[in-house]
């Protein structure tokens, strides 16, 4: 008999405990993110944004590509298509820019002042970036350094088929100049499979170059094609006045 009433008491009291919890929960703010409308989660402590090492959509800085095709070769699914041709005789392009990547995934791009690809312990890596800011870091914090390289090939085609890409990141690891990298972009779905073939080759980089212009090594660090265009424009002006 006692067990009978104890059973009733247990049932009623535990139901009340459960009901108290659900009632309290009604007044908690919801944890829902209204995804496409509410994208970044600054106000939420429990939801983190995208991590720094996230492997998203591929992107390449064409003005730093030397056309070595290492990425196309290592790609397990062959989704990178590169066609190169030789530069006409006498034409030189600007050197590629140096890249320093730190272990916390910070990337600096610009002119390397101190340090080398072989990272000696105890030394300092120094780099002036495109805006002229000076960065330096002890070599223990540096993941890798890519020094500036000469560009001898013209890229006629650099296509990446993101519909095939498996986001392994091998191409970015082998890239000689660290100009191929994975962005954090991950929302690039389209209605059409063909539009996932991204064309990166930029013929404008090679525009306005004439064979006699041997001195156009961009010392300025800034966007190479931009600098060259300005120089070409200045030259044309000079010829007109003469």
């Amino acid at each position: 008999m006692r067990a009978y009433f104890r059973n009733i008491y247990a049932a009623v009291s535990t139901i009340l405990i459960g009901m108290r919890i659900t009632f309290k929960e009604m007044f908690h703010p919801s944890v829902t993110n209204q995804y496409p409308y509410q994208y970044y989660f600054e106000k939420r402590k429990n939801v983190r944004g995208i991590h720094k090492g996230f492997r998203g959509q591929l992107y390449i800085r064409m003005e730093d590509c030397i056309g070595c095709k290492k990425c196309a070769m290592i790609c397990p699914v062959d989704c990178i298509y590169i066609e190169t041709s030789r530069l006409e005789k006498g034409i030189t392009l600007s050197d590629t820019r140096a890249v320093v990547r730190l272990k916390d995934q910070t990337v600096w791009i610009g002119e390397l002042l101190e340090g080398d690809e072989k990272i000696e312990p105890g030394t300092v890596v120094k780099l002036r970036d495109l805006d002229g800011n000076l960065h330096e870091s002890p070599s223990e914090h540096v993941e890798h350094v890519v020094t500036s390289k000469k560009r001898r090939l013209k890229l006629d085609r650099f296509d990446i088929d993101m519909s095939l890409c498996m986001f392994c990141g091998l191409c970015t690891e082998v890239c000689s100049t660290s100009c191929l990298y994975m962005t954090q972009t991950h929302e690039f779905s389209t209605y059409d499979r063909a539009s996932l073939l991204f064309h990166f080759a930029d013929p404008s980089i090679y525009e306005g170059l004439t064979p006699d212009e041997t001195e156009t090594k961009a010392e300025d660090g800034a966007d190479a094609s931009e600098g060259r265009k300005q120089k070409a424009a200045r030259r044309r002006q000079r010829e007109e006045t003469a």
């Binding site: 659900t22 009632f23 929960e25 009604m26 908690h28 703010p29 919801s30 944890v31 829902t32 209204q34």
Partner: peptide, 10 residues
């Protein structure tokens, strides 16, 4: 709505 609020949804 009630079920959503009880489960911290909207």
């Amino acid at each position: 709505k009630v079920s959503a609020y009880m489960q911290d949804r909207v």
